[in-house]
Amino acid sequence: MNRKEVTTDSSTAFHSDAKNGFIRALATVIRAQQPTNQLLDQLTDGELLTDYLLVRLPGVTDSCHASAEAVSRVQWFYAAIALEVEHRSGAPSAAMVMMSQENFGRALVTSGRLVVVNSYLRHVNRFGFVSCEALNQEAERLIEEALQWIRRFPEPAAEG
């Protein structure tokens, strides 16, 4: 993923795409992971997802250790990918994210017994996107790849 600096107001960046399937799935996953946070219920999907916009501040360096917030963002992103794959294909899907403390790891999405997404992760503290469109493009690319694997190998994908 090519990431650049963002200097726009991120609070309205997701407004136009809030009804998009993946964007909606990601907001649903975030709300489900934090059910007791009443503040989240008051936020729109767009406001909730602003953490996924990459904003680089001058003079701020990355830590060599993955922050809990960054790991959560990665986990929720791939959980939303799995949710959309399951919704679109009907095959039971799940995401697994394995991270080391040194800021790298791996994300898998499985459908049945089939691995449909296999992503290597580096510098997870920088996990984000320059815009809502970039977030959605990357998600749709991963979802479409997963759906292609499911169409190619339907039997293992259907096994749960």
Rank of each mutant, 00 (worst) to 15 (best):
H87D: 00
H87E: 05
R88A: 09
R88I: 00
S89K: 03
S89I: 03
S89F: 04
G90T: 07
G90W: 06
A91F: 05
A91M: 12
A91S: 13
P92H: 07
P92I: 08
P92E: 07
P92C: 02
S93M: 01
S93L: 02
S93G: 01
S93V: 04
A94T: 13
A94C: 05
A95T: 01
A95H: 03
A95P: 00
M96T: 13
V97I: 09
V97Y: 08
V97W: 07
M98L: 13
M98P: 00
M98F: 04
M98R: 12
M99G: 01
M99S: 03
Q101V: 04
Q101A: 05
Q101T: 07
E102P: 00
E102N: 14
N103P: 02
N103V: 01
N103K: 05
F104W: 12
F104E: 02
F104H: 12
G105N: 05
G105L: 05
G105R: 05
R106E: 04
R106T: 05
A107Y: 11
A107Q: 08
L108R: 15
V109T: 11
V109Y: 10
T110M: 11
T110L: 12
S111Q: 07
G112M: 11
G112Y: 13
R113K: 14
R113V: 04
L114N: 09
L114W: 13
V116M: 10
V116Q: 09
V116T: 15
V117W: 06
V117Q: 13
V117L: 06
N118R: 15
N118E: 14
S119V: 07
S119K: 15
